[in-house]
Design a binder for these strands. Structure first.
Lengths: 129, 129, 129, 129
DNA sequence: GTGGTCTAGACCACC
DNA sequence: GTGGTCTAGACCACG
């Protein structure tokens, strides 16, 4: 359950946090009743402001993924896993669809698109390592 | 050269305008020396704020796609087509980079990502035909 | 559409703001497409922090009551009125549920509770007239 | 003297405990000189934090309902019953008044309010059984 | 001008 | 210790 935040990828930080919690729930890393890291702890770990974490957690509450346990923390709800599982791939599909649509508008063929994604994959892998 | 604007697709309106001009140039719909519609006219046609069109045209001037013709309007520059054709790929790269970054956060491996893009490509092709 | 805020009535300020907007929509004081006061303006008028207003408006967006009009402001959505009229009852239901739960803890029977509510209804009616 | 705790009804748990002790005293379930369960025992029975019970008992001491008996525990004071009897209905009245006031703001008529409370009563009864 | 995001720091109730 | 709320002030993109 180690999150990584990219502050410059266009997606709001609180949104990145919320997503990664959802993905952890979907993957089983967080199960029903588990407590998520405290606002302050996660903020410290990710080197971001506690309010930003709080906002992510608030969003997860309204999405029915987390619920408060008074004076204790925030725990994963019963139906959370099911709710989260759909989202993982769905999000990426959306992005890819957008990219493909824009590529089509620019008259870029599928073969060229495949080359581009291979180049970008290679680029990101070299960056990670 | 009929543009369509989607005010809620996440992309800034001025950006959508600028792109579609660039695509028109890249595709040959607008050739060297052609005049683009006046700010007021295009704003009226697209039902958007003239400032927004002005900003798009300003961006296109900065990018060397358009140039002012004194007392006449804005025309497509000589090197514009070539320049726009390169831009074409740049935007897609950006999108793909974003998708890859998000996929990594969702713990989606490169192989799975390749599968997804193949699925989405197939999907878009079937939709076109 | 004049709001009044009571900072010490136990209900969060942002919640009071959100409710009063909802009630205004439900009552027809704000119609589809109307722009709500800007974050800064309302904050000034109510003498509260702009972030607090922003939070109320954000809640109203996730509730589907408001939507952003880029660079312009926030407008009332199409289905908002209907949605708000439903919310109206929902809020009261919540309150009643709370009262019933407390009554049960005090071992107050349903019949006694009915009597109490009749008394209080009579009391409020006499007060109004 | 079996208490029931609803951790999500908006009322603080220690407050729920304190109230139910008061109601037990008012109803005669606890008489002058009776010892209340120890902090640890009650905490175990209700599956809540001992600190929470301790806080409830502290409040009851401040309210003059309980007093310490050295080396023994906490016992019900002499004047406690009379003191507690007034409170039972008072709290519910407060809640109902609040609900009625909010209903009025939302333009919900008395008749509709009666329907709502009947529905909620039915709902809570079905839930109990 | 508009909303959106983030940071910083404070206070509160609750466990 | 926990989350919830509020304030203050900054920066950004957009129209």
């Amino acid at each position: 359950m180690s999150f990584n935040i990219d502050p410059n990828n266009g997606v709001a930080i609180y949104e990145q946090v919320a997503r990664q919690v959802k993905f952890a729930v979907a993957a089983g890393g967080l199960e029903t009743g588990d407590l998520v890291p405290s606002v302050r702890e996660l903020a410290r770990d990710l080197a971001i402001n506690p309010n930003t974490v709080a906002r992510a957690y608030r969003e997860l509450q309204t999405d029915g993924v987390l619920e408060t346990v008074r004076g204790t923390g925030l725990s994963v709800t019963r139906g959370a896993r099911k709710r989260c599982q759909g989202e993982r791939v769905k999000l990426i599909r959306q992005r890819l669809r957008q990219a493909i649509s824009e590529a089509a508008q620019s008259q870029i063929a599928a073969s060229e698109l495949r080359e581009l994604i291979e180049e970008e994959l290679a680029r990101s892998e070299s960056k990670e390592s």
